[in-house]
Write a protein that binds this DNA or RNA. Sequence first.
DNA 1: GGTTTTCTTAAGATTTATCTTAAGACTTTT
DNA 2: AAAAGTCTTAAGATAAATCTTAAGAAAACC
Lengths: 230, 230
Amino acid sequence: MNDSVNILIIEDEEDINHLLCNIIRTNGYTPKPAYSGTEAIIYIESQKWDMVLLDLMLPGLSGEEILKKISKESSVPVIIISAKLETQTKIDALRAGADDYITKPFDIEEVSARIDSCLRRYRHMPDVSITNQIHHKDLVLDTDTKMAIVNGNELNLTAREYKILFLLMSSPKKVFTKANLFESVWHEDFYGDDNTINVHMSNLRSKLSKANPNEAYIETIWGMGYRLKS
Amino acid sequence: MNDSVNILIIEDEEDINHLLCNIIRTNGYTPKPAYSGTEAIIYIESQKWDMVLLDLMLPGLSGEEILKKISKESSVPVIIISAKLETQTKIDALRAGADDYITKPFDIEEVSARIDSCLRRYRHMPDVSITNQIHHKDLVLDTDTKMAIVNGNELNLTAREYKILFLLMSSPKKVFTKANLFESVWHEDFYGDDNTINVHMSNLRSKLSKANPNEAYIETIWGMGYRLKS
DNA sequence: GGTTTTCTTAAGATTTATCTTAAGACTTTT
DNA sequence: AAAAGTCTTAAGATAAATCTTAAGAAAACC
């Protein structure tokens, strides 16, 4: 029962925190969001954690301070997630006890992979990641083969298509705006041409519906964006 | 290499697999989890094992089939762990080459004791032979001689090339990203120069295609990585 | 110490995915 | 019914990833 893997997420931006929670849940672990440094401290002191994801830019108590506190008091692995991409910041963080450092905007699969690999290192676990498939209704995304499986048909996806679908499936109920997509799939803060996304969505949909014409897997939310159809 | 005792655990339920891993680790041996019959076969063919723990109820390739395969090809001791408690099933398993039979839910200490005693019995007898080759189509990788065999031609591989090919062949359908390769082949978390991998792939491919110009064994998945061509 | 093998780096060539554009059809909202 | 947002197509342009080659660096071997 209590062999669940608990991961604390310290990140003040709600959107990003939720996204990280979903990634972690998808990977089979148990996420706990904290939205400020002071909130985080309470959680840190109240129970043991298997891992901490920490944003450096926090209101109030800074990420650096939290990092110091954590590494002084425990040996829990910490992955920094930060918009600061200066090498020096990175080095400082790693010196201060961080185990890995990911810059924003991040690739969700990379985050996923690094969490796995960090956990593996810590627990001396064998090199088999716990889950390599994401399921949603009869749609399966295989993160090993990078294929979608619909109706038993294996579909080859391009890198972009795969990443879009991965994102949608990682948060099944969430509506992803085009800005969200540009950030998570393209890793760009600025917004590209909306039509770029239209076209990719169209291509992705047509691959999926070729495998199962009776079902629409991706839903358009008018004026908002896209989500997985539930 | 080392004199660790390697035990393969074939069990699809994650919780139980992890538990068995822990027991084995506690006893001073090295566990390797396999979560399906097909995965197990790969490991069985890829190296020598000191023992196999096998669940009879597996998705896909059944436990009985695996047991037959193992006992046909090698003399590695096999302990069955199963929820089936009919006497007939038990007898059948023992006839088919199993060395011991434990019913679920099991007593941790009992499992531990039986593993020890079974190993003690076997230690003196050398394992006659589990195959030391991995096959994929007409490509064979010999884990003893570290050579690839294509079309009957034995190819000398460098250490890197061997490791890359071994990795690809260990999961025939999986797409390996460059990050995967750096981690598994170079044992580096940070990502080196992509081009290093390009060049090694190129060299490996040219060796393979020199032996068989008609076949491409390694496939590039644009924007994602490489995989064995199936 | 010299020779051989293997690894890495770099630069140019090539291939492929992706982007852009645009126009007409469709859907939803007002 | 009109307007705004979205879908689909396709073709050409662009950007990015990859391949290949060769040469120098590093390591291993003799």
